[in-house]
C-alpha cells in the first residue's frame, strides 16, 4: 500500500462541529427540565415535533441543493436551531405554528443563504420573529406556571399540539407583558397584584433562567464559546436596567435582577448570542456585539411594541457583526499597533 501524502498538520484536536452541536443540545437539558416542571410537557412536545420538522426541512433543502444528506444531517445543526426555537416558543403551541417557525428557520434563514456557516442571521431568531409578527396572538399565549393553574399532562400536551381545536388552553400574560402594560402601579404594587411574579422575576421563569445559566456555564467550561459576548450582554442589560430603575415607579422598566431573570435574557445570552455563525468573531468584536444586544434588549423591552426583545436585538446586532469584525481585527504578531509608528 503506498504511503498517504497529506500536508501538515497531521494531528487534529478532539473537537468537531457535531460535538459542538451535541454539547449545545446537552446544555439545554436542565433548562428544558425546569420549563417542563413549571409549565408541563408543552415545551418538550414542541422540541420533539420541531426536531422532526427541522430534519425534514434540512433533508429537503440538501436534496434540492444536491448535497450529501447523511454527511450534513449528522452535524446536528438543524436540531440545535429547532431546539432553541422551540424552547423560545410558548408551550402548547399548535403544530402548524411550530412547523412554520422551524421551516422559516431552516429553509429561509439558513439554506436560502447557503446553508450552515453562511447565514448572516441567527436562524432560530428569524423563525421566532417570523412567527411573532405573523401570529402575535398565539405567540404571546403562555401557559400559567405550576401553582397558578392546572399543569397539563403529556397527553394534553400532545393534544394541544396536534389537535389545537380540541384543547382549551389556559393562558396568562408573561411577567414582561404585565410590566409592559403597566402604567399606573408602582412596581411593588404590581408585584402584589399579579400572581405571576416570583421572588426576582416571574414564577418558573427565574428558575428556568438559572437552569439555562448552569447549562451555559457548562458550555463555557467546555470551551464551546468564550465568555465575552454573554458577559457583555448581561453586563449591558444590567447597566441599562440599573440606570433607569428609579426604585420602582410606575414608569420604571424593572429592576436589573428582574431583567436578568425574565424572558429569554439568560437563555439568549448563552444560547443565542453565542451562535458563532451570525455573531462577531474577534474578541473585542464579541464584547461590542454582546453589549449591543444587551442594550437593545432593554430598549426594545421598555420602549418597543413587543414584550420580549431578545430576538429583535439579536437580529439587529447580526446586521452589524461584519462591520464590527472589520473594525476590531486583532493586531497581528509583529505589526505595530495602529497609531504607533
Amino acid at each position: 500500500m503506498p504511503l498517504l501524502r497529506i500536508t501538515s498538520p497531521h494531528a487534529h484536536g478532539p473537537m468537531s462541529t457535531s460535538r459542538v452541536m451535541q454539547h449545545v443540545l446537552l446544555a439545554t437539558v436542565p433548562g428544558i427540565i425546569v420549563l417542563t416542571h413549571f409549565f408541563g410537557f408543552g415545551t418538550l412536545v414542541n422540541i420533539l415535533w420541531g426536531g422532526i420538522v427541522a430534519l425534514a426541512c434540512e433533508a429537503l433543502a440538501l436534496a434540492l441543493r444536491g448535497r450529501p444528506l447523511a454527511f450534513y444531517l449528522k452535524d446536528y445543526s438543524a436540531l440545535v436551531t429547532s431546539t432553541l426555537l422551540c424552547i423560545a416558543l410558548p408551550p402548547y403551541a399548535p403544530w402548524w405554528l411550530i412547523a412554520i417557525g422551524v421551516a422559516s428557520s431552516v429553509l429561509l434563514a439558513k439554506h436560502l443563504y447557503g446553508g450552515l456557516g453562511y447565514n448572516p442571521f441567527n436562524p432560530a431568531m428569524v423563525g421566532y420573529v417570523v412567527l411573532l409578527i405573523s401570529f402575535p396572538v398565539q405567540m404571546t399565549a403562555w401557559a400559567p406556571p405550576r401553582g397558578l393553574g392546572e399543569v397539563p399532562g403529556l397527553f394534553e400536551a400532545l393534544l394541544a399540539c396536534f389537535s389545537p381545536a380540541s384543547f382549551d388552553a389556559v393562558t396568562m400574560a408573561t411577567p414582561l407583558d404585565v410590566l409592559k402594560q403597566n402604567n399606573s402601579l408602582l412596581l411593588e404594587d404590581l408585584w402584589q397584584e399579579n400572581p405571576q411574579f416570583g421572588r426576582w422575576g416571574g414564577i418558573g421563569w427565574e428558575w428556568a433562567s438559572l437552569a439555562f445559566l448552569a447549562g451555559g456555564l457548562w458550555l463555557l467550561y467546555q470551551r464551546i464559546f468564550t465568555w465575552h459576548a454573554p458577559v457583555a450582554m448581561l453586563v449591558a442589560i444590567t447597566a441599562m436596567a440599573g440606570m433607569f430603575y428609579d426604585n420602582g415607579s410606575s414608569a420604571s422598566g424593572g429592576s436589573p435582577l428582574f431583567h436578568l431573570l425574565s424572558g429569554a435574557t439568560i437563555f439568549g445570552a448563552f444560547f443565542i448570542v453565542t451562535d458563532p455563525v451570525s455573531s462577531a468573531v474577534s474578541t473585542r468584536g464579541k464584547l461590542i456585539y454582546g453589549a449591543m444586544i444587551g442594550a437593545l434588549v432593554y430598549i426594545i423591552r421598555v420602549r418597543g411594541n413587543y414584550p420580549d426583545a431578545v430576538a429583535f436585538a439579536v437580529l439587529i446586532a447580526n446586521f452589524t457583526a461584519p462591520f464590527i469584525d472589520y473594525y476590531t481585527q486583532p493586531r497581528t504578531y509583529g505589526h505595530a499597533r495602529k497609531g504607533d509608528s
Binding site: 412554520i100 417570523v130 409578527i133 405573523s134 401570529f135 402575535p136
Partner: peptide
C-alpha cells in the same frame, strides 16, 4: 390563521 408575514 392569518399569516401576517405574507401580507407584511
Amino acid at each position: 390563521q392569518a399569516f401576517l408575514l405574507a401580507v407584511l
